[in-house]
Design a protein around this nucleic acid. Structure first.
Length: 268
DNA sequence: ATGGTAGGACGCCTA
């Protein structure tokens, strides 16, 4: 039985609990990391998640915005809920679990979207996004705290040309500007992280995990971006079996604008 | 060049 880890920006966990239930029933990942739960901790639907067979739950939420949560079939220990940029936002959650008899750290991130104007001088939200990525530099893949690390989440950046529907048309659009894409790649390599979604699907093959709500027909126009990511320490790349992007979830009833991404490892 | 949709919480911010 492979170890399976999934990530999904759910855009309100309470509204979309039926979709979470459908996804967990059909795919049964060992761990699921959600972003944009938009749910204060005291209102988190823990009982619903337990009823789906996920007994081990950690969350870091706030009212109205942001929020991350990690569900697991195996025991987890909350390691850290780190505050980035002294903003008081709930955008990170790190848990530890065991796989292959060894401890693994799992970081769940929701990186700021950054607003519309890609200029940090006039747009504080873009400044915040760049500062957030800079602060992520000290989240390292190799630490004394575990034998391996996984980092997942909505990083709100599509780093490669093959991660967007039009590289040229998105060069000045927040999520694909050079300062973001280069910043994210610099942070990823400095941290010792491997981009698992590109291990078996290298460019120029396109990968998207997000399609805007604003399109008349998201599937026909297919103007997607790869904003969601699964990274790991080098210790896990030899045991990566595959990564699946569940594109069909974008067509479910009242969907999130992001779809789940699932990585399977030959570990138990 | 613009505006398009969605969620939380109920006027407007964020994505």
């Amino acid at each position: 039985m492979p170890l399976t880890v999934a990530t999904w920006n759910i855009n309100s966990v309470r509204l979309r609990m039926p979709l979470v239930a459908k996804f967990l029933a059909e795919h049964q990942p060992d761990l699921l990391c959600l972003q944009e739960t938009k749910c204060p901790d005291e209102l988190f639907p823990e009982a619903d998640v337990r009823a789906l067979g996920y007994e081990h739950i950690a969350f870091h939420g706030q009212k109205g915005y942001h929020g991350v949560a990690t569900f697991s079939k195996r025991p987890i220990e909350t390691v850290e809920k780190r505050e980035f940029c002294k903003m008081g936002d709930s955008r990170h959650l790190c848990v530890r679990f065991e796989a292959g008899g060894k401890p693994v750290l799992l970081h769940n991130f929701y990186v700021p979207a950054g607003g519309d104007e890609p200029d940090p001088e006039i747009n504080p939200k873009f400044r915040h996004k760049l500062d957030f990525i800079a602060e992520m530099h000290d989240v390292q893949a190799d630490t004394d705290a575990a034998a391996a690390s996984i980092l997942v989440g909505d990083l709100n950046i599509a780093p490669l040309e093959a991660d967007v529907w039009s590289h040229k048309q998105l060069l000045k659009v927040v999520s694909h500007t050079p300062v973001e894409t280069e910043g994210l790649e610099a942070m990823r390599t400095a941290g010792g992280w491997a981009d698992l979604m590109r291990q078996h699907t290298p460019p120029p093959e396109r990968i998207y995990t997000w399609w805007s709500y604003r399109a008349r027909d998201w599937e026909a126009s297919d103007r997607g971006r790869r904003l969601d990511h699964i990274w790991s320490s080098a210790s896990l790349t030899p045991v990566l079996r595959d990564v699946t992007v569940l594109k069909q979830a974008r067509g479910w009833e009242r969907p999130s604008d992001h779809v789940p991404v699932i990585a399977r490892f030959d570990l138990d």
